[in-house]
Structures are given as structure tokens and as C-alpha cells.
Write a protein that binds this DNA or RNA. Structure first.
Lengths: 329, 329
DNA sequence: CTGAAAGCGCTAACAG
DNA sequence: CTGTTAGCGCTTTCAG
């Protein structure tokens, strides 16, 4: 088996306390002793057992990222981006990261999992019940890319309203008046933010919102193509389409191309999320960029503040979004 | 603080041993007693502390997925897929999953991390040194989507050779003779497999491999567009392009469209990985599908077999790949 | 079927 | 600066 602190203590002729200090409070041990200990550790291929340490310290240096999404690909590009940010930041704090779907978390002997997590980052559509469950066990919670009312916890969000405003602004500047929106059936919080912001922005520009130009689509290409085709085939069609996310916008591009429309001359298309697919279409897709990596990092920073009991400076952090203009508009 | 086994023991009037059994070996305690204990646990909002359990049992029920990739997006669609498979399977085994990049793993107080992981799945270009390091600490290793010589460990791979063979076969059936390949500068193992398989398949079909038709590209769109443009602009250009991955193939599609070539009439394009972007282009991209989810699951299954000391039935598992034919070819 | 007690590997007073 | 020692919360013989 692996060497323990006792083995090292014996081999180096010092107490276990000194060995412990050598590893986690080196300044408190004399240089000579320290070197003796390290040498012994090397010989024995020893490294401190984190479990035992967690046990003694009553803290685990461990946080979790829980993605609350029912179906389809869990780690899609969006959450993978957030996840990377979380990974980077938690490593910087020397925290380990556990990743799970909400589903799995609950179904697996969830009791076994508790008590070893200091904090949780909830992504997707977490329910209030889940939050309370964690909080009742002294586990701190931060929520990302979602917001639920009446909860006392920090949020990390992207500025959906401003992003959407930029889209409309951009299209208006390009001379568009007949702007359609294909709203999405995915995360309720996100969808309603984008939809409402769209309505507001249109109003601000004094543009009418024609009911014929507002549609809903599932967030998959086939559904989006179908909806966009209907939109474009009606008489007096829109001159621009804003898709609630990139998938939907790409569906619109495909629909337009299949109808032999020119993009952006006949129809402009704009998406949201600025996923890698924006660069795959011809023309490439204009889209609102979300700084997913930064969102992830910020989640960890907030969680750390919470863990240190510093309180949280601001409950709701809204990161700026910006439009990346490409050939489609 | 959270309730401990002692609190429950006191409240229910039984020993801690019985409480312990109630949770992890319920059959060994009488029904009445069990119910008493569970009731007390509910009242106290108790659940067993996994850390303490790990400490006592000398096992942690924890594995790690280490992605050994230096730059760019770590959790790209490919590894995210594998990751999902790993997540699902580890939850099924009631194992927790730690995810990290190799870089972070090493730089973070890596000592603190050891001893709490029973096994590791290595993705990307792990070096032999890393493997030996783990094995010397009694940590089992499984490698996915990569292979290094002379190591005694299980591999989970996709059948690169057969996938490539299917590509060539398909193109030949469509009447192509002048088939170009844009090889990639990414994972050495994957790239060389695909490249060599391409050469072999061409030979099998009695087709010459024209040096003018073989190129290398970085795995990004811009680079691929540039290379593909050169390829297509030469006199007597190829009639089909096989991209070593989807990114590269999509670059080829874009290059062709910009040169006003018709796809697939003037030039056919095929990719590899069958990523979601295959559905975003017009026409959509034919590509070799890799069952990433299954690869991930299989990794966990192998690791579990190793952990149970069952030995590993087969060291190298090669999962079948298949061609998804779409409009680009 | 249940209880008492030793111990998993480490840390943190407290003494020296 | 270093050693002694009492736990951290749980499991597991071994007795009863």
C-alpha cells in the first residue's frame, strides 16, 4: 500500500506532526528537518492522503457543477464553455471539481455524495427545491445562466437584454424594418429574456411587431428550418430574422438558401450564443457573443467568497455580451 | 454542523455500528430497529459522511478523467461526448467523477490530489511518463482515443482504419478517382491512423495517390479554407476531398463554395467525427460517426473491471465507426 | 441481531 | 522549532 505519514515519520526520525507541517506549513520547520523529511517522502513515494486531510480539517476542497438539463446533450458547447471556466478557476483555488447532471446526482446514492462538497454551481433549470436542499445542508450555491425568484443566492448571468438590443440596433442600422424573431423552446429564463428584450427594442426603435413575424421553434435544426421556411414563404416576408439561438438561426440560413434567397441581400439572419457553428455556414452567422469561460470563472470566485464567509459583494453579476457581425447580416 | 452517526445513534438509542449497518447493510438489522434509525436520521437531516466512509474503507469511489490537451478548447465537442459517457457510466457505478486538464492537475498541489482517486481515464496525448506515475501509485489507468506503445493498460479506441476505409469506398462508388486528403495537425495517433488508412484504402482500390492531392492543415477553419483553396485552384484538381476531421472538411466546403464550385457535383467533401456542425452547412457534410458516448462508457467499464481486480478481458477495444452520408458527397 | 472498541491518515492544540 | 495526543466520522472485527 501507499506510504503514510507514519512511515515517513519513522524513516526520517521526526514526529508525524513535523511531517505534516513540512507539507502544509513548511516555514514552521527548520530547513534541515524539512529536507530530511522530503527526502524520506521521496524514497517512500509518499504523498499526503487528501481524504485523511479532509477528515481532519473538516473540509474537502471540493465543489460541484450540476447541470440541470433533462434531455439531449448535457455538455453542449455552451455548458462546456462554462465548464472550462469553472475548471480553470477551481484549479487556481486548488479546489477539485465534481461534475454531474442533476438527474444522476439524485439517482445515485445521493446521500453518499453529500458532506463532501463545500459548494455547488447550478446550471440550467434548477428548481428552488434543489437550492433549498443544498442550503439546508450548509452547502453554498451559485446559479449560472438562470434565475429563479425569491432565492437568496448569487447569480452569474450574461446580459441577455443588452445583447438582444444590440441585435435589433444592428439590423435597424442596416435598414431593416420588417424584423422577425424565431423564439425558442429551451431554457425558460433565457427565452423569455430574449423575447421580451426583442419586443422592447423594437418599441424603442418605433417599429411595429407584426404577429406574422413572431414564431416559436424547438432548438433543433429541422424544426428551425421548417419554421423559417413558413416565415419566408408568406407574402410580404420579413427582411431579417433574429433566431433565439444559433441553432435556430442556422436553420433560418438553411431555409433561406434552399429558397434561393441571397443572404444578407434578401434576408439577413442573426443568432445568439456565438457558437463555433457560426463560422461554419456560408455566409457566416452574425451572433451575440457570450463570455462563457468568464461566466464559469466568476461562478467559482463567488463560491469562494461565500466559502470564506466574506459575504457576496453583488448578488447578481451580469456580464456584458457583444455582437459579432459576420456575413449573414 | 451536520449531524453525525453519533447523533443518530443517541437519538435512536442504538449503537453507531447499527446505524452504520442500517445504511450500508440494511439486511443485517431488524426491521424495527432499522425504522427507528431511519426516523432519527430523518429528524436530524442526517446522511452518512462520505469522507469518513472513504477513510474507514480505504477507498474513495472516485475516478478522474484527465484531458491531456495543451491549447484551445479543452472540452470540445468530441471530448464533451466522451465525457458525457463517462459521467453516465460512473454514476451508474456510484462513482464520482473528477475532471481536469493534465496541465491543471500537475500544477495544482498535485500531491493533494493523489490517494483519493482509484483510477484515471486519460484522454488526448498523454505521455508514457504520466501513465507510469499513476501506476506507481496503484492508480489504474485507461486510455481513450490514443495509443502509446509498450504500456500495459487498456485502450478504448474508435476504428479509425475502417472509418477511413468507408470514406474511400464511398467516394469510389460515387465514381471518384482523384481523391485528395487534407490531413491534420492534431492528435498524432489519430492523424497518422487516418492518413495511413487513407493510403492503404487508395491502394486497395488501385488508385494512385497523387502527391499534389495530399495536404496538411491546422485544425481550424481559416487554415483549412486556405489549404483547400490551393488544392482546388491547381489545374487538374481533385474531384473529392477527404478532410481529416470535420473542421477541415468544412473549410473545404467553404473554399469550394467561394470558388463557385457545386457540391457535390464539382467537388465532393467528406469529413470525420460527425460533429454537430455537419448539419449546419449547405449541403450538409458526409462524415464518419464516432460513438463518443459509448467510448466514454466503455472506459468506465474497463476501469471498474480493473478496480475489481477482474483483469481486463481485452486490452484494446476498438469501437465500430460508420459513415453518415449527407449532401456533400 | 446488536454493542464496544480499535483504527483509517492526518491535523491542531498544547507542552516543551 | 518539535513532539504528544486527542480527535475528525465511519466501519468492522469480535463478543455477546
Amino acid at each position: 500500500m501507499n506510504a503514510t505519514i507514519r512511515d515517513v515519520s519513522k524513516l526520517s526520525g521526526v514526529s508525524t506532526a513535523t511531517v505534516s507541517r513540512t507539507f502544509f506549513d513548511p516555514d514552521r520547520v527548520k530547513k534541515d528537518t524539512r529536507e530530511k523529511v522530503l527526502e524520506a517522502a521521496r524514497v517512500l513515494n509518499y504523498s499526503p492522503n487528501a481524504i485523511a486531510r479532509a477528515m481532519a480539517l473538516q473540509r474537502t476542497n471540493k465543489i460541484a457543477f450540476l447541470i440541470c438539463k433533462a434531455h439531449s446533450s448535457i455538455l453542449d458547447e455552451f455548458y462546456a464553455g462554462i465548464c472550462e471556466g469553472i475548471m480553470k478557476a477551481s484549479n487556481a483555488y486548488d479546489y477539485q471539481l465534481l461534475i454531474s447532471t442533476e438527474e444522476d446526482w439524485i439517482s445515485a446514492t445521493n446521500s453518499a455524495k453529500r458532506g463532501q462538497i463545500e459548494g455547488v454551481i447550478l446550471g440550467g433549470n434548477a428548481k428552488a427545491e434543489r437550492v433549498l436542499d443544498f442550503q439546508s445542508r450548509n452547502i453554498h450555491v451559485v446559479m449560472v445562466n438562470n434565475r429563479i425568484s425569491g432565492m437568496n443566492l448569487p447569480y452569474v448571468l450574461s446580459d441577455e437584454r443588452d445583447g438582444t438590443r444590440q441585435v435589433v440596433q444592428h439590423l435597424v442600422e442596416r435598414g431593416h424594418q420588417k424584423i422577425a424573431m424565431i423564439a425558442g423552446r429551451f431554457s425558460p429564463y433565457i427565452c423569455s429574456e430574449r423575447y421580451n428584450a426583442f419586443l422592447d427594442a423594437m418599441k424603442e426603435h418605433g417599429l411595429p411587431v407584426d404577429a406574422r413575424y413572431i414564431r416559436m421553434s424547438d432548438p433543433d435544426i429541422d424544426s428551425a428550418v421548417e419554421i423559417a421556411t413558413e416565415l419566408l414563404r408568406q407574402k410580404d416576408p420579413p427582411t431579417a430574422i433574429f433566431g433565439a439561438n444559433d441553432i435556430i438561426a442556422i436553420g433560418a440560413i438553411k431555409a433561406a438558401l434552399r429558397l434561393n434567397l441571397r443572404i444578407p441581400e434578401d434576408i439577413a439572419v442573426v443568432g445568439y450564443d456565438d457558437s463555433s457553428s457560426c463560422r461554419t455556414t456560408e455566409p457566416e452567422l452574425t451572433s451575440v457573443h457570450i463570455d462563457r469561460m468568464r461566466m464559469g470563472q466568476l461562478c467559482v470566485e463567488k463560491l469562494q467568497a461565500l466559502l470564506r464567509g466574506e459575504g457576496v459583494p453583488e448578488q447578481v453579476s451580469v456580464l456584458p455580451a457583444w455582437l459579432n457581425v459576420r456575413g449573414s447580416s
